[in-house]
Amino acid sequence: MDGAWVGTWRPHRPRGPVLAQFTSPGPKYAILGTTGHLAHNPTKTKAPAYSISGAKLPPISSCSPGPRYFVPPAITRNGKHVSPAQNICGLPKIKTEITPGPSDYATEKANRHVFKRPPEQPMAFRHKEAQSQTPGPGTYTLPRLIGPNTTYTTASPCYTMVGKRKRGGFAEDLARTPGPAAFPKVEVDVFKARSPSYTAASKAGAGGDRTVKPGPADYRVGRVTLTKPEAPASTFGIRHSLYTTPLILPP
């Protein structure tokens, strides 16, 4: 076998095709076809396409319902043509209603429409909605005579009194100095000898420190490799490609 040694082994020919030898994207991409009108390959010549339409609709003048519908012989294009005939049916039912008699009518009230009579004025109560809600004398008020906005008199001059201003007043602090409350309180220990201070802590538990600590069984002495020699260990690597440039060291 020919070829340079790469490490402890020499390259050999592959038994079958390797995917790295192919430069195409694989079966993921499909080539457009050369037949049909839609999705045609633009690099190929396309022949003219013809469409086959369906049968034409019959004309309106020859439209008929067909043998499915039975047309009576008395029906013509101008309407129904039959000879005159009489229908025989029963007597109609008469509905009996209660009609008023002569005593139900009062003719005395008709005299006011037949004979002359003097006019009569009826006496009735006043309707609630017809009562007019007219305002009383206390509803109207005369225009004021004091103030700037008077109606028909001359207004005297008006003066307004404003409050005390923060700027430009006699009590304005031009120096902008802080007051006594602006300074914090100074501790006595800053400028005098400080006395010793003590803190009072809580009483410790009777059992002392109760934290969980590891015992002798938690330590594994046999795995110590820092102070004792360790046996060699082999690892499995990955397979490299045949087309990767090997590492050639100078002789």
Rank of each mutant, 00 (worst) to 15 (best):
A130E: 08
Q131K: 15
Q131D: 06
S132Q: 14
P135M: 03
P137D: 03
G138W: 03
G138M: 09
G138T: 09
T139D: 02
Y140S: 08
Y140Q: 06
L142Y: 01
L142D: 01
P143W: 01
P143N: 02
R144T: 10
L145C: 00
G147N: 01
T150E: 02
T151Q: 09
T153A: 06
T154F: 01
T154D: 05
A155C: 03
S156I: 08
C158T: 14
C158M: 15
T160S: 08
T160F: 05
M161N: 06
M161D: 06
V162D: 10
G163H: 01
K164M: 04
R167T: 00
G168P: 00
G168T: 02
G169E: 00
G169K: 00
F170I: 06
F170Q: 02
A171D: 12
A171N: 11
A171Q: 07
D173A: 04
L174Y: 03
L174C: 02
L174E: 07
A175I: 02
A175G: 12
A175M: 13
A175V: 05
R176V: 10
G179D: 14
A182N: 04
A182F: 05
F183A: 11
F183T: 06
V186Q: 09
V186C: 08
E187P: 05
D189R: 10
K192G: 01
K192H: 12
R194L: 00
S195T: 07
S197W: 01
T199S: 07
T199Q: 06
T199V: 11
A200E: 03
K203F: 02
K203I: 09
G207S: 10
G208A: 08
T211W: 04
K213S: 07
P214W: 05
P214C: 04
P214S: 10
G215K: 03
A217R: 13
A217K: 13
Y219D: 06
Y219M: 09
R220I: 14
G222N: 15
G222R: 12
R223W: 14
R223M: 11
T227E: 09
K228T: 14
K228Q: 14
A231L: 14
A231Y: 07
A231R: 08
S234C: 07
T235V: 13
G237C: 01
I238V: 13
I238T: 11
R239P: 03
R239T: 14
H240L: 13
